[in-house]
């Protein structure tokens, strides 16, 4: 059974940062479905960008979890509510 528990909250600026990365990551993923290697320059840019954005995304969670010391769980992961800036711990 999936459970959801509020474990903290980030600032508006912090939320904006991850929201932009989230949007970009989604955009890159969907662009990857239509971009083919024959468009070499753009394809190379995309591959590099996906790597960089993924790293920045993970860095945000690492930084924030270190800053706020949220509860964690072995079979869980955190999610953010972009409307309220709340952080949830989702466990199964």
């Amino acid at each position: 059974m999936v459970t959801k528990k509020t474990v903290g909250q980030v600032t508006e600026e912090e939320k904006n940062e991850i929201q932009q990365l989230f949007e970009r990551r989604n955009g890159l993923n969907e662009l990857a479905k239509i971009l083919t290697p024959d468009n070499d320059a753009l394809y190379q840019k995309l591959v590099k960008d996906m790597g960089e954005t993924g790293t920045k995304f993970q860095n945000w969670w690492d930084r924030m979890s270190a800053k706020y010391q949220w509860d964690s769980a072995e079979n869980g992961h955190w999610e953010i509510n972009f409307e309220t800036c709340e952080i949830y711990l989702i466990t199964e």
């Binding site: 955009g27 969907e30 662009l31 239509i34 971009l35 753009l42 840019k45 995309l46």
Partner: peptide, 9 residues
Amino acid sequence: DYLKTEMYR
């Protein structure tokens, strides 16, 4: 598709 590609390019 064109929008996505062009916004990115």
